[in-house]
Amino acid sequence: MKLFAKHNNVLPGFGPTMGYTLLYLSLVVLIPLSALVFKTAGLSWSGFLEAVAAPRVLASYRITFGAALAAAGINAVFGVLVAWVLVRYPFPGKRLVDALVDLPFALPTAVAGITLATVYSANGWVGRYLEPRGIKVAFTPLGIIIAMTFIGLPFVVRTVQPVIEELDAEIEEAAACLGASRWQTFCRVLFPLLTPSVLTGFALAFARGVGEYGSIIFIAGNMPMVSEITPLIIITKLEQYDYQGATAVATVMLLASFVLLLVINLLQKWSRRYAE
């Protein structure tokens, strides 16, 4: 990236497009989000701490971030596998499967939540086989992980897939010539090349999971301290007309998302440099 390079750019339109971009960004995103911060600012410091660090709220961070971490982890493993299979192995219906990966992008979250609850509850298609074996999915923290895995899957697949496509065959051949087994090649040669993109996908899936609400409340069980996610805490606070408490927790989440995104963008920068 040539950030500071001076360019004699012959292309016009930087002024108007940049101006419009900043204007629209401010109107739609920045000003509304600043309302959140201002509302929170009405709280005293101790009031703020009380709102964002109460035991129930702390438990909800643990659950939300923990489940998002677990879901992003599952997605990192299976996402890489799916991407690998989609790029490298031919099988019938591949195009269809490839397209299906984007389903969670397009399916409304409420529908996803109701449907996942239908499939994974004790009398559901999958749940009825798990329940007798003592595995409860719906209405437990496991349900939260399932929902987050669902919505986060495309992120890993779609960030890793293009990188696998661009892997240079010669590297693998060279490794094979030098006597490395396939598994060794993957662990020592390919995996390091994939790492930046896997991390990016992981972080994206994680960020998305942390904020998710619609699909989770249908399947989570919502028990305080056990399966209550942070967005639900915000709703609960609103329900008690505690706007400042709600915006305080929301501000914490907003900061977390911002930091996460910044990390993602840095990761992408790093991965781009790595790839070059």
């Binding site: 950030l3 989000l33 998710e212 609103l238 929301a250 840095l266």
Partner: peptide
């Protein structure tokens, strides 16, 4: 075009994507 702060701008553009939907609605009510 090249300019300073491009990364920050891109991050800000991404922001709504990771903001919890609950918050996205709330800010307009506020």
């Amino acid at each position: 075009f090249s300019f300073t702060g491009k990364n920050l701008l891109i991050t800000l553009i991404d922001l709504p994507f990771s903001v919890s939907p609950v918050i996205s609605g709330l800010i307009y009510v506020l």
